[in-house]
Amino acid sequence: MRIVAEHLNYTYNPSSPFAAHALKDVSIVIEEGEFFGIIGHTGSGKSTFVQHLNGLLRLPSSMKKYKPKKPKKGESLPPAPLLKVGEFDLADKKTDFRALRRRVGMVFQYPEYQLFAETVQEDVAFGLKNFSDEKLTEDKIANAVRAALEIVGLSYDEVKDASPFELSGGQKRRVAIAGVIVTRPEVLVLDEPAAGLDPLGKKEIMELLHRLHGDWCKTVVIVSHDMDEIAENCSRVAVFSEGEVKYCMPPAELFRHAEELIALGLDVPLTAKLCLALERRGIRLDCDFTTEDFIRKTLVAVGEKDA
């Protein structure tokens, strides 16, 4: 499913002393099959944006009470916001949001804190049952849960009857992710999927996402603070700042703007910092900012210099 957003605006608590513009004229296209990254500070609008993708936050025009504004004389209206996720038109009142949510899975920050059921099996099956129109047979449920648990790296037979609250932190997070992907959504959105984990846990989560990307979920969108994570994994990145999209391009291009990003108060990957430091010393590296490419290009560059 291709995601097309144009001219999105969003204001929290409109007409109150705490009104905050979270999105200002945001336009982004996410192609099917991408591993898309979104970066920005807390409050930059990135979470607000992703919550639009499965209709948790809605465009005004999709609300029941919505009445289109009529332009006053001599005044032209701003372009109408548009949001399409595959065949779903999220600006339309008639959109079936339940059907949309089945196909756009969303993993929130610290998803382990949303576990609630007595057994892992029951918790993972929650979404499956909610989204199916007829009653599923026990077999069907068990098979789907088994597949979901196994792809996140847990053994179905070992954990299915365990209480989700008895598992270790890393296992809980996997169960929570399994509970979202069990419906095989085409788009998977994750907000800081690796937050709070130790380096090994982080690495394992990123490996899991790559395992899911492709066959299980065509498109993966991650929101992250960790620039190294973004540089290593994403096909393209959108940079949010104060509700606007400042950049939207592949990491190999984006981190050439390292100085501008730093000026926005954002971090850049280690490789970009090293490239900047090398540039100041007269060595220009044309790398794509992944660690491996940086190492390769550095070795080549130094070899050339000596020769």
Partner: peptide, 13 residues
Amino acid sequence: ERIMNAQKARGAD
């Protein structure tokens, strides 16, 4: 609010 959103995303109504 966050938990409600998370469960809504899993089809809770």
